[in-house]
Design a protein around this nucleic acid. Structure first.
Length: 1133
RNA sequence: GGGCGGAUAGCUCAGUUGGCUAGAGCACUCGCCUUACAAGCGAGGGGUCCUCGGUUCGAGUCCGAGUCUGCCCACCA
C-alpha cells in the first residue's frame, strides 16, 4: 500500500517481489560465472562424481510450450540440486531437426505466404536448378529462427544447461556421428535394403509419413467377388470362393486367397487353388487366422461384412503384405506412381485383363465391378462406410505403394537383445532376453541396470521390444541426414578399375556390396564413412547418392553419443595444464589435432588446412583474449615447439588450441564463427572427454509417448556403438559383450492437460505459453507450481483461463507459486531488517550451540533438519510434489507463521536468535534453490553481507563461484539438530495459542485487546518456556494461576480447564452457549464412535495393545471433557 | 483389440507398509490494513473417499466384479 517503502533506506527491498527486476540480471551473472559449464576432467580425475542429463531435444518446429517448461523444470531441479550436492553436473542442451514435421511446417508456411514451396522447388530440382539445396536453405533459416527462440526460452526458464555445448541434431558434429553410425551398422550387416509399402500420394507423387495422413470417413461399398477353384491341372472344379473387399481394383495384383483354418465351413479350401478371373493367374488358398470368420449378427463390422475369404494383394495393402510374407506369396504391383493401372511396374501376366491397363484407380474400380457382374462373378455389393487415409497436402486418397527402403535390423540380438537385457530384473515381467549377468561396475552399468520411474513404464518398453519389427529408416524428404550410400553400375566400378582405386586410397572408409551380394545384378552399393575426399571420388566416377534422408529418430537415437563427441571423443591427451602451461585457468576447453608435418598442416594456400592455420594465426594475433594455441611434437607433449626450425623439422606435429570463451565470435576476416563447432568439424578433437566422464548419463527425463521411438533406440545404439567390438573392423559384438546403457534411470513425467482433461494444443486454443507466465507471475512461480503439480500419476490437469485483457491463456494455479514466492520475499525482507538492526558485532562469534537456545529456536532447527531429510528423499525418488509441499510447509507454516512471529518479542535483544534466524533463512534458500533459482539467488545476495555467528550442526559452505547461490553447497543438517522433545513441547505451545485464538475469534475480541490467562501450574510452566512468544501470539497481558474473575470464559486445553479474562465487551452469553452446545454434541458423537470400537471384542483382542490403550485413554478424556463442558453450559444459565 | 492411469470438499489435488476426528491450495463465511507480507493475518463451514461384493478387530488404502473417464500402442479386408 505504502508507496514510500523505499524511502527509509537504500537497502530496503520493494514490498512485492517483482521478478522482472531480478531475473535478467541474475541470469547474466550465472552465465558469466561459468557456473553451468561442466568440467569432464573433474570427473575423470576422480575429484568429483559426475551427474549428467541430456535434454530431450525439442523440435525446431515451434517455440517451447508448457509441457517443455515442465520437463525442463524437473530436469533443472535435479541438476541444480546435484550441483549443490557436490557433483560435477552436465546438462546438455540441444534441438532436434524433426525432419518430417519441420519440412511440413516450412512447406505450409511458404505456401501460406504465396512463395515457392516444396512442389515448386521439386520442379526446380528436376530442371537442374538446385531446388533441393535452395529448399533446404529455407528450412535451415527457419530452424535458425526457432533454435534461437528455444534457447532464449530455456534461458528465461532458468535452465542451468551447459549452453557452451549446445548441439543440434543436424549440425556437423552430430552429422559425423550419424555417418559413422550408419557406416558401422552397414558394415556389420545391421542395415539392409528392403521393400516396403509406404503412404504414397499419387498427386504430388511423394511418400507421406503416418502423421501426414489424415483419416476421413468415406461412404463406399463392400464388393463380393467370386474366384473359381481349380484342380491340380488348372481346370475349374465348379466351386467358387467369394472374397470380400473394399478395393476390387487391386485384384489384378492378388497372389493368394486366405481363409481362417478354424472356419468350420471353409477351412477345407486351404491348400486348393483358384484362378484369378480375366488375369488367369493361378494362386493358392492359404490358411491364416488373421482372417475373420463371417458373422452377420456381429457388432464387429469386420465379421458382419466378411465372406470368410480374403483376397491377398501384397503390393497394395499393408496387411496383405504381412500375410504374403508369412506364406511366401508372390508380389505383383499393378500400379504406376500416378496410381493408374499399369503393366510397366511389375505386372507381367496381364492375360485377358488388358482392358484395365491405363485406367485410373477410380475408373478401374467401376470397370472391374462391371466386368465381374457381366461375367456373373459379382456375388454382392453392400454399402459400407469406413475411414480412408488422405494426403494432408493434396487430399488425394493415399495409396499403399511398394518401394525400396532402408532398414535397421533391430530384431538382431545385438540390438533388441541388448535393450531387453538392459532392464532391471525386478522390472521384467517375462523371461525372454533376461539379463545374462548381474550389474557390471557402477561406473559402467550394462545388463540389468536400466530402471524406469515410475516402474509401470518398464512394461511398455518390454512389450514394444518383444513385438519389434525391423526399423525402416529411410524417408522421402529433403530435410534430414542424407543416406550415405552411393550406387553405381557394377560394370563401371569393377571394369574401369575404380574399385581398385577405392581399395587403395580409402581402405576401411567404405563398405561395398557388389553384385554377388545384392539381388540387383547391375548395381554396386557403397556406404562411405564421413570423408570428403572419398565422397568427391564417388561423385567423380558417377556414383549416385541415395536421394532419401534418414528417419529423424536415427540421429535422435545417437543423442547420448553425438552430444558427447563420439566417435572422436577418445583421445589420449595430457592434462590441459601440460598442453598449454601459459594459459590461465580461464581456459574453457582445449582441442587438439594431430598431423604429420608442418607443410601438410599448413598446406597450400588454396587448400583446406591453409585456411585452417590462417584462421588460427589470425585469431591468435587479433583476438588473443579468445584463443591460445601451441604446437608440439607428438613424441613429447610436455615440450612445446617454438622456433620455426623446430616446427619445420618435426614430422609428427600436434596442435593444441585452447578457447577462453564459447559461442559465436566475430572476426573481421571470416565473419561470425562458432569456434568449438568449427574446430570439431575440422578434425580437431576435444581433450575434454565428455563421453568418458558423463556417459552413461544419470537420468533421462521424458514423456511416455517416446519410450519406444526414442528411449529404446538410444539404449540399443549406445550399447552397440560403445561396445569394444563395434569400435574395430571385425564387426559388432554378440551376446553380452555390449557397451554401457546411455542412462541409469528413465523418469517418465506426467503429461499436462487442461482443466477438462484435454491435451493442450494449438488447435484447441488451450495452450499456455511459458513466457507469458514468466511475464505475469515470474519464472520461479511457474516452476514452483509445475513441481507442486507433478505427482506420480500419468496426467496432471491445469485449469486454463483466457485473459481477455491480454488475449493470452493463463491459469490460476500459477497464483499459488507467485504467492509462495511473495511470502518468501517478505519473510526475507523481514529477516534482513532484523539483521540490519543488529550491529556488525553479530558476525564472527562462536557458533551457537543448539542446546543453549530457547525452545522456539530448537524447534525451528529440528524442523529444518527434518524437512531437509524429507526433501532429499523426495529428490532421490523423483518425487517433485512432496518436495514442493515440504518447502511450502517449511517456509510458510513453520518459518513464517510460527518462527518469525514467535521470535518478534525477543530477537532484537538476542544475537543467538539472530544467528538461528539467518542460518534458517539461508538453509531455506538453499533447499528451495533448485525449484526457485532466481528469487533465492536474489535474496542470498542480500543475505551475504549480513553475517551472524554460525549454528553448530548446521553447515552452509561458501559458494564456489562468484558468490552465487547456485554454486553453494547443499545445506548439511546434523542429526543432532533433530529434537523430538522440542517439537513436542512447541506443538503444545501452539495448541495453547490456537485454543486462546479460538476463544478470541468466537467472542469477537479485538486484536489489540490483551487478555489474562488463568491456568494451572503445568501449563504455566509450559508457557514459561516460550513466555514472550506465547503472550505475543495469543494476545495475553498476563498468565497466572490465580482464580479467574467472574466474567472469565472457560476453555479446554490438553484435558484441563482454563480461563480467559479481560474480554473488553464481556462474555457474549449466547455465543458462548452456542459454542459449548456444539462442543458437547461433537464430543458425544466422538464418544459413541470410540465406545463402539471398544465394545467390539475383536478389536480389543486383536489390535495392537498400545492402540487399544490409546483408544481407552482417549475415551476417558473425551468423557471428562464432555462432563466439564456440560457443567460450564449449566453455569451459563 | 492390447497396455497403462484416474474417479477423495464447489474446483485442482495430497493421503507413505490398512490404525486416533480423511488433509492442502483456490473458492466460500466471519473478524482484521496487528509496523515482513491484503499476492496477507486469525477463526470457521464444506466430504455416501465412483458402485457392489470380499478379506480384516478395523478399508480412502488390500482383493474381485462393474460403471464412468483419460492416455499410449496396434488396427480398421
Amino acid at each position: 500500500m505504502s508507496e514510500s517503502s523505499n524511502e527509509s533506506g537504500s537497502r530496503e527491498l520493494p514490498k512485492q517481489y517483482r521478478p522482472a527486476e531480478f531475473e535478467p540480471g541474475i541470469l547474466s551473472r550465472w552465465l558469466a560465472s561459468g557456473a553451468f559449464h561442466a568440467d569432464p576432467a573433474a570427473v575423470k580425475s576422480g575429484r568429483k562424481r559426475g551427474y549428467s542429463v541430456l535434454i530431450p531435444p525439442p523440435n525446431v518446429t515451434a517455440a517451447l510450450h508448457l509441457g517443455h517448461a515442465l520437463n525442463n523444470t524437473l530436469q533443472d531441479v535435479l541438476v541444480r540440486a546435484k550441483r549443490m550436492q557436490g557433483y560435477e553436473t552436465l546438462w546438455m542442451p540441444g534441438t532436434d531437426h524433426a525432419g518430417i514435421a519441420t519440412q511440413t511446417v516450412v512447406d505450409k508456411r511458404l505456401r501460406a505466404e504465396g512463395k515457392p514451396a516444396l512442389v515448386e522447388h521439386k520442379q526446380m530440382e528436376a530442371a537442374g536448378e538446385n531446388g533441393r539445396e535452395r529448399f533446404v536453405e529455407l528450412v535451415q533459416a527457419f530452424k535458425d529462427e526457432y533454435e534461437a527462440r528455444i534457447t532464449d526460452q530455456l534461458l528465461k526458464m532458468g535452465c542451468s544447461c551447459d549452453f557452451d555445448r549446445q548441439r543440434f541434431t543436424m549440425d556437423e558434429i552430430c552429422a559425423r556421428a550419424v555417418r559413422e553410425a550408419f557406416f558401422r551398422l552397414f558394415r556389420d550387416g545391421l542395415i539392409y535394403r528392403g521393400k516396403r509399402l509406404v503412404n504414397w500420394d499419387p498427386v504430388t507423387q511423394t511418400a507421406l509419413a503416418d502423421d501426414e495422413v489424415e483419416n476421413e470417413e468415406v461412404e463406399s461399398s463392400f464388393w463380393y467377388m467370386k474366384y473359381p477353384v481349380v484342380d491340380a491341372a488348372g481346370e475349374p472344379t465348379g466351386e467358387h470362393v467369394t472374397v470380400a473387399t473394399t478395393r476390387p481394383e487391386t485384384f489384378f495384383g492378388d497372389t493368394g486367397v486366405a481363409v481362417n483354418p478354424n472356419d468350420p465351413d471353409r477351412a477345407r479350401f486351404a491348400g486348393q487353388r483358384v484362378k484369378l478371373p480375366f488375369v488367369g493367374r493361378v494362386i493358392p488358398i492359404v490358411a491364416d487366422d488373421y482372417v475373420v470368420a463371417p458373422d452377420p449378427e456381429s457388432s464387429d463390422s469386420k465379421a458382419k461384412y466378411a465372406s470368410g475369404f480374403l483376397k491377398v494383394t501384397p503390393a497394395h495393402d499393408p496387411n496383405d503384405w504381412d500375410l504374403g510374407q508369412r506364406h511366401s506369396l508372390d508380389i505383383v504391383n499393378v500400379m504406376a506412381p500416378d496410381a493408374s493401372i499399369s503393366e510397366q511396374h511389375g505386372w507381367e501376366d496381364v492375360g485377358d485383363a488388358g482392358w484395365a491397363v491405363g485406367l485410373s484407380r477410380e475408373d478401374a474400380r467401376a470397370e472391374v465391378e462391371k466386368r465381374f457382374r457381366d461375367a456373373g462373378l459379382l456375388a454382392d455389393k453392400k454399402p459400407y462406410s469406413h475411414s480412408v487415409g488422405h494426403s494432408y497436402r493434396s487430399h488425394a486418397i493415399v495409396e499403399p505403394y511398394l518401394s525400396d527402403q532402408w532398414y535397421v535390423r533391430v530384431t538382431d540380438d545385438r540390438l533388441r537383445g541388448s535393450a531387453l537385457r538392459s532392464m532391471s530384473p525386478d522390472q521384467r515381467t517375462t523371461d525372454g532376453f533376461r539379463a545374462s549377468s548381474a550389474d557390471r561396475t557402477s561406473e559402467e552399468p550394462g545388463d540389468g541396470a536400466l530402471r524406469f520411474v515410475p516402474s509401470r513404464y518398464a512394461k511398455s518398453f518390454e512389450t514394444w521390444h518383444e513385438n519389434l519389427r525391423d526399423w525402416c529408416i529411410s524417408r522421402q524428404l529433403w530435410w534430414g541426414h542424407r543416406i550415405p550410400v552411393w550406387t553405381i553400375s557394377n560394370k563401371i566400378l569393377v571394369e574401369d578399375g575404380h574399385l581398385d582405386t577405392l581399395e587403395r586410397k580409402f581402405k576401411g572408409a567404405f563398405h561395398c556390396i557388389t553384385s554377388e551380394g545384392e539381388r540387383d545384378e547391375q548395381i554396386a552399393t557403397i556406404c562411405a564413412q564421413p570423408n570428403e575426399e572419398l565422397e568427391a571420388f564417388l561423385e567423380s566416377i558417377g556414383a549416385a547418392q541415395d536421394p532419401d534422408v534418414l528417419d529423424t529418430w536415427f540421429s535422435s537415437a545417437l543423442w547420448p553419443l553425438s552430444t558427447m563427441g563420439w566417435p572422436n571423443h577418445a583421445i589420449q591427451a595430457p592434462d590441459a595444464r601440460v598442453l598449454l602451461p601459459e594459459a590461465p585457468g580461464s581456459l574453457r576447453s582445449i582441442y587438439v589435432k594431430r598431423v604429420n608435418t608442418w607443410s601438410e598442416f599448413v598446406g597450400k594456400a588454396d587448400e583446406f588446412s591453409g585456411d585452417l592455420i590462417d584462421r588460427l594465426i589470425f585469431l591468435r594475433e587479433k583476438d588473443a583474449d579468445k584463443l591460445v594455441y601451441q604446437l608440439f611434437s607428438a613424441k613429447d607433449l610436455s615440450l612445446p615447439l617454438y622456433t620455426p626450425d623446430e616446427i619445420q623439422e618435426c614430422e609428427d606435429l600436434v596442435c593444441a588450441v585452447g578457447l577462453k570463451q564459447h559461442g559465436e565470435v566475430e572476426t573481421a576476416k571470416f565473419g561470425s564463427m562458432h569456434l568449438d563447432d568449427w574446430l570439431l568439424s575440422h578434425g580437431f578433437v576435444s581433450t575434454a572427454d565428455l563421453l568418458g566422464a558423463f556417459n552413461p548419463t544419470s537420468v533421462l527425463s521424458t514423456a511416455r509417448d517416446i519410450i519406444t521411438l526414442w528411449v529404446s533406440r538410444m539404449v540399443m545404439f549406445n550399447r552397440y556403438f560403445l561396445s569394444d567390438a563395434a569400435s574395430n573392423d571385425r564387426g559388432g559384438p554378440a551376446g553380452d559383450a555390449l557397451g554401457p546403457i546411455p542412462f541409469r534411470d528413465v523418469y517418465i513425467h506426467a503429461l499436462l492437460q487442461d482443466g477438462d482433461g484435454r491435451k493442450m494444443s494449438k488447435s484447441l486454443g488451450n495452450g499456455v505459453d511459458p513466457l507469458d507466465i514468466i511475464d505475469s507471475h515470474g519464472c520461479d512461480a511457474m516452476r514452483f507450481t509445475l513441481c507442486k503439480m507433478t505427482t506420480q500419476t500419468q496426467d496432471v490437469r491445469l485449469p486454463v483461463e483466457h485473459d481477455a485483457a491480454t488475449g493470452k491463456n493463463t491459469s490460476p494455479k500459477f497464483d499459488e507459486g507467485r504467492n509462495f514466492c511473495n511470502t518468501l520475499w517478505n519473510a526475507a525482507r523481514f529477516t534482513l531488517s532484523i539483521l540490519d538492526r543488529a550491529g556488525p558485532e553479530d558476525a564472527g562469534g562462536q557458533p551457537v550451540s543448539p542446546g543453549e537456545l530457547p525452545l522456539l529456536d530448537r524447534w525451528m532447527l529440528s524442523r529444518l533438519t527434518q524437512s531437509a531429510r524429507s526433501i532429499e528423499g523426495s529428490l532421490d525418488r523423483y518425487d517433485y510434489a512432496p518436495y514442493a509441499d515440504s518447502m511450502y510447509d517449511l517456509l510458510w507454516r513453520d518459518f513464517c507463521d510460527w518462527y518469525l512471529e514467535a521470535s518478534k518479542p525477543t530477537i532484537d535483544s538476542s544475537p543467538a536468535q539472530r544467528a538461528v534466524l539467518r542460518n534458517a533463512m539461508e538453509t531455506i534458500l538453499r533447499l528451495l534453490h533448485p525449484v526457485c533459482p532466481f528469487i533465492t539467488e536474489a535474496i542470498a545476495e542480500g543475505l551475504a553481507d549480513r553475517r551472524t555467528a554460525a549454528v553448530a550442526g548446521l553447515t552452509l559452505g561458501e559458494p564456489e563461484k562468484a558468490g552465487l547461490l547456485c554454486t553453494a553447497a547443499w545445506p548439511s543438517c546434523d542429526e543432532s539438530l533433530v529434537d523430538e522433545d522440542a517439537e513436542a513441547r512447541f506443538d503444545r505451545v501452539r495448541g495453547l495459542v490456537e485454543a486462546v485464538r479460538q476463544v478470541r475469534a468466537q467472542h469477537q475480541v479485538k486484536p489489540k485487546q490483551r487478555l489474562t490467562l488463568h491456568t494451572d501450574a503445568p501449563t504455566l510452566a509450559l508457557v514459561d518456556e516460550a513466555a514472550e512468544a506465547t503472550r505475543f501470539l495469543a494476545g495475553l497481558e498476563a498468565v497466572t494461576t490465580d482464580a479467574p474473575a467472574a466474567d472469565a470464559v472457560k476453555f479446554t486445553f490438553a484435558g484441563g480447564d482454563h480461563f480467559l479474562s479481560g474480554l473488553a465487551a464481556g462474555v457474549d452469553k449466547d455465543a458462548e452457549r452456542a459454542r459449548l452446545t456444539d462442543l458437547v454434541s461433537k464430543l458425544e458423537s466422538d464418544i459413541s464412535k470410540i465406545e463402539g470400537r471398544l465394545s467390539n471384542p475383536g478389536y480389543t483382542e486383536k489390535a495392537p495393545e498400545h492402540l487399544v490403550n490409546q483408544t481407552r485413554q482417549q475415551l476417558a478424556e473425551k468423557q471428562e471433557e464432555r462432563d466439564r463442558t456440560r457443567q460450564a453450559l449449566e453455569g451459563l444459565g
